[in-house]
């Protein structure tokens, strides 16, 4: 199940600030993890919601069918966005990806006639 916590994973590679190998996280580490969590949970939810809205607007289906399909897509999108945010090489990149996806989806939704 991967290497033990301090020697691998998203944290160590991002932080060159560690002076010794301990279980304790530096302040910088905490900031980076918090950034990723925020990107994954908050930004991921934003993307999932926008995907639901955009697909509800754009899918060429009856109103009820579009509602159901778009909701299912939104639901599956959220956990996947969280994974994307933690797979990204840096926290800044994770945020960049979230914002890119969100802007694309929002534009698509607006083109489809959605008004926030």
């Amino acid at each position: 199940m991967g290497a033990p916590f301090p020697s691998a994973g998203p944290v160590s590679a991002l932080s060159e600030h560690k002076t010794k190998k301990t279980n304790l996280l530096t302040k910088h580490d905490r900031l980076i993890i918090a950034g990723r969590i925020l990107a994954g949970v908050g930004g991921g939810y934003l993307c999932a919601s926008l995907l639901a809205i955009a697909s509800a607007r754009l899918l060429p289906l009856a109103r009820l069918d579009a509602t159901i399909i778009s909701t299912l897509m939104g639901l599956i999108c959220w956990p996947i966005m969280v994974m994307v945010c933690f797979a990204a090489r840096t926290a800044v990149r994770a945020w960049g990806m979230v914002l890119c996806v969100a802007i694309c989806l929002a534009s698509a939704a607006i083109l489809g006639g959605w008004r926030p």
């Binding site: 290497a3 691998a8 994973g9 998203p10 590679a13 994974m83 933690f86 797979a87």
Partner: peptide, 17 residues
């Protein structure tokens, strides 16, 4: 060391779990 996709997912698995 460059973290692999698998290692970062293992980390996420551990902590979200």
């Amino acid at each position: 060391m460059k973290p692999t996709f698998r290692a970062s997912m293992a980390w996420l698995h551990t902590w979200s779990g």
